[in-house]
Design a protein around this nucleic acid. Structure first.
Lengths: 91, 91
DNA sequence: CCATCATATGAACGATCGTTTATACAAATG
DNA sequence: CATTTGTATAAACGATCGTTCATATGATGG
């Protein structure tokens, strides 16, 4: 029941990556600089995000650019953020 | 960054529980019958869902009834389902 | 072709997760 | 009060996860 999607979104760093490339495509080094994560870690997460269909890759010379594949993905993250914030107010 | 919410939603059985009590409050045994899960397993998951604020409990005699705490929760699950289905069509 | 830049991959690790089993607790009923 | 019904908890386990480190691959420019 949509297990792959939820599993993929359950990692905070993967969600950060999605936000990071949500507005414009970025290459691996840009992402790892932007988020201060090791290149190999970013690559691992990108691979999983591609496998889920959440992002797409496109090569341009030496660099490979990644972009979010559907706008609904960021929408869902926003919904999740709203709900998460609302639920945490209750404490 | 909303880690608790996403972690909580990353379990398929927890999502099944949310759907199960999404329309009407149910007690533990009803949930475990409904989903064919062991009572202790359901209790464990209910505890985590409560800790996240996703559900609320109310005792009535021997039984304890659980309900989803915000309607946005089911909305989010629906959004997730739509997106998950859309992403899986791509294979 | 060789060096370099950009990215991917594989192995390994501790940490966390979901589940099961057994047992404890709480409320009600006789 | 003893029993039963309903639920919670604790310990234990294998499985999966996120991360790191080392190394490999791919493309480009000299």
């Amino acid at each position: 029941m949509n297990d792959r999607l939820y599993k993929c979104l359950s990692s905070g760093n993967r969600r950060r990556i999605l936000y990071c490339i949500g507005e414009e495509a970025k290459c691996v080094n840009e992402i790892s600089d932007c988020l201060d994560l090791e290149q190999s870690l970013v690559s691992h997460h990108l691979k999983e995000l591609v496998n889920c269909g959440l992002i797409e890759k496109e090569r341009d010379g030496k660099k490979i650019y990644y972009r979010v594949s559907e706008s609904e993905i960021i929408d869902l993250l926003e919904k999740g953020k709203e709900l998460g914030d609302k639920l945490e107010e209750r404490c």
